[in-house]
Write a protein that binds this DNA or RNA. Structure first.
Lengths: 234, 234
DNA sequence: GCAACTTCAAGAGCACCGCTCTCTCGTTTT
DNA sequence: AAAACGAGAGAGCGGTGCTCTTGAAGTTGC
């Protein structure tokens, strides 16, 4: 029953790894069922046949467990979007952007509670550690990649005075990414990214209740609008 | 010490009204300090010098108290936006829209926890009663009003194929509002509204942490973008 | 091989939560 | 004046995160 990677490990190490994995599996399931606010260490322990205090051998606090789940969520969303975008022909910028946008919504709808965990109201008293920023940036990097590739191919969105005025607001981010994307185009990219999340979160959080009936085609509309503004070639 | 509206009321009625008002005042403050998830009936009771069970004379449950606060928040945001928009010259459609958008963000930043309460991740196990929909609609009605006034004056946004495809998604809403706004323009309006909330919630929820430095000018950019798309005349 | 050390889980306990029940006592109504 | 009603108190239930102590089991060094 021992896997290949178990060589040279003491029974204690093995036991610890398995217990921690089982704990996370249950935690993930609970998170999907009751959401972050309803996630209870005691309930997880109960289901594992453990006493609540034993869980603290594995996670020093509820927040630490939450942090692990947040990191997982960011990375899962990130790789979901990445693998959707990588399938599209590199010069099909429109297709790459569309695939990414659709993948974002798809993951959010399939993982509503986890989406809420990372993009919803922050859990009070909980401060996300800095480790998460790299994982959180993955989706953004995909979109920025599409835009900078399109720019290199000579396709740029039209520049407006307001766009130039707002450029300094994202200048630092622009230098961090160093993706060869000028600030004003990055600003437009950030706005597009925000725009997609605005629709997704309204759908996931139920704000469209009796407003938008066919949320899927509405999302398609938004993608179309964003693409038009970004001026990506067909 | 009795006000004008107290005539003909028994001391019990007066006492009840005052206690309920004090209770709500403290609840509002706590909400602003610790957020919805941290709002505790016991803490409120403690501060009032009451025993926790006594609070249930006024609110049958924590959720009922939350519902009251949610309704208040919707209405306060609604009147905040309304009063900002009403100050602008009626034919200045761009100005009316801008004033509304700025008022939305202003209120959200001044009332972060209350904004999270109504536009953030839904409180688990809590279902918003139908009473709230009217209050929730107020902001949307302001924006729709600007758009339909502009349309009546002959200013319409450009129609795209995707816009027509998505029109049925908001057809029902269009008939409810009956604002003389054709579905495809309403769809664009809903998208604009979503777009503004996307930026605001990202700012309020801290998603722009080290990304967008000057969130105010970034918001101005978004307003400019939205206005361009809506084709409102200067 | 056994002693010393480390790790795990259990259990009791603390302070908090929402909520329910009963009981008392003062107000209101009849 | 008696009956009905209402507000608050208090005890209690089951739940939460988290801490501390204690005993058992695994691991390591002499």
């Amino acid at each position: 029953m021992t896997s290949a990677g178990d060589a040279g490990k003491t029974t204690r190490q093995l036991h610890r790894e398995r217990t921690e994995a089982e704990l996370l599996t249950i935690a993930r399931r609970h998170l999907g069922e009751v959401g972050a606010a309803g996630l209870s260490l005691r309930a997880i322990a109960r289901e594992m046949g453990l006493v609540s205090s034993a869980v603290y051998r594995y996670f020093p606090s509820r927040d630490a467990l939450l942090t692990t789940l947040i990191l997982e969520a960011y990375n899962e969303l990130g790789s979901h979007v990445e693998s959707a975008e990588i399938c599209v022909d590199r010069v099909n910028y429109r297709g790459r952007f569309t695939a990414s946008a659709l993948a974002m919504r798809e993951w959010a709808l399939d993982n509503r509670h986890r989406y809420a965990l990372i993009y919803g109201s922050p859990v009070p008293g909980y401060a996300a550690p800095t480790d998460t920023v790299a994982a959180a940036a993955r989706v953004g990097l995909v979109l920025v990649g599409v835009l900078s590739d399109a720019l290199r191919a000579g396709h740029a969105a039209t520049l407006t005075p307001a766009l130039e005025t707002a450029s300094p607001a994202v200048a630092e981010l622009s230098s961090i990414l160093a993706a060869g994307l000028p600030p004003h185009l990055l600003a437009l990219g950030v706005e597009s990214w925000t725009r997609l999340h605005g629709v997704i979160s309204f759908e996931v959080f139920g704000q469209y209740n009796r407003m938008v009936l066919d949320t899927e085609s509405f999302y398609a509309l938004v993608i179309d609008e964003v693409l038009s503004r970004l001026n990506l070639p067909r």
